[in-house]
Write a protein that binds this DNA or RNA. Structure first.
Lengths: 167, 167
DNA sequence: CTACCACATGATAATGATTACTATCTAATC
DNA sequence: GATTAGATAGTAATCATTATCATGTGGTAG
């Protein structure tokens, strides 16, 4: 199975492009273009280290000493919803435990957080022939599938229907 | 790519086996076998829903009304360290954001939590021919590789050397 | 260019999961 | 049964995140 690090050059050039188009996309999407949002997306796109909210806060504060930490949290979430950023740590707000210690993976409902175990035999092979990747010594692999469970899909349809003929 | 839910029967039978051997493995590993630990592993192995600590607490309290929530948290962590359980939500204690919204995956250092983007072209195909799995409507896939980064590996070696000739 | 208003922000309080602390207890060993 | 290292109960502390709400401002229609 193919597997490689994404180069810093590639990340940086794609980040530059996204930053240039950011204001336009916001206005098209009905998001106000504020100095805070610009500063936060700029800081995020300049970061290759997948920062936490408090790190973005520290970086942005150099230019905007008045910005609030709450705004950073809020804005990062807003950016994710708008598709301008993503969370590395998806779908989990507290620890979930599993009594099954056999190698396996998970499918998670994005709405109700229901989790089921799945098996993906090919992923075991991913690590077998490869113990190193770009300086990292490989230890394990976890695949998480984002999905909508049956109950939530039904509820979603009902809800949309109830909301009326808007679309 | 092969992909399927793990059946309840299979989970339950493997859970029964692990429970039967639990006390022995604890004693071999130098872990005291306490009524609380037995109750918690029993509750976890009986659960197919990947419960949170507070849910285990609620379940265990029916038999052990005196148990403390702190004990449940501590014991679940202990069980994970001992390889008797695992956390579905690995390696992240707070949200990490990524400015790269192109489809990609991550490799995470288990010690320092350094994160790098990786590309796994085959995983894109995982979802293409398949929109449903056991009632779940598929939306996306995230692979997280657990690894040790170069710096942490070096520090680890140094540390072990410093700790002396024990092994 | 100005005024308006829905939305955004700052400051801070509240929340909620997890961890720390410490006195007490107990499983394991002899 | 006595000893003791490790475990637990109860509670306080921590820390990331979210809620609240008064104030400020980007977008836009006039």
């Amino acid at each position: 199975m193919e597997l490689e690090l994404i180069s810093e050059q590639r990340r940086a050039s794609s980040a530059a492009r996204r930053l240039a188009e950011f204001a336009d996309r916001c206005r098209k999407g009905g998001l106000a273009v504020t100095p805070q949002r610009l500063a936060i997306i700029r800081a995020l796109l300049a970061s290759a280290d997948h920062p936490r909210a408090d790190l973005i806060y520290a970086r942005v504060r150099k230019q905007h000493p008045h910005i609030s930490l709450a705004t950073v949290h809020r804005t990062l979430e807003t950016l994710c919803e708008a598709g301008e950023a993503r969370k590395v740590t998806m779908l989990h707000d507290s620890a979930r435990y599993d009594g099954n210690v056999e190698p396996h993976h998970h499918i998670v409902c994005v709405r109700c957080r229901r989790i089921r175990d799945i098996e993906v035999p090919e992923l075991g092979q991913l690590l077998e022939g490869r113990s190193e990747l770009g300086g990292f010594t490989m230890l394990g692999a976890s695949l998480e599938l984002q999905a909508l469970c049956e109950q939530c899909r039904r509820k979603g349809l009902k809800k949309r229907a109830a909301e009326g003929a808007a679309d």
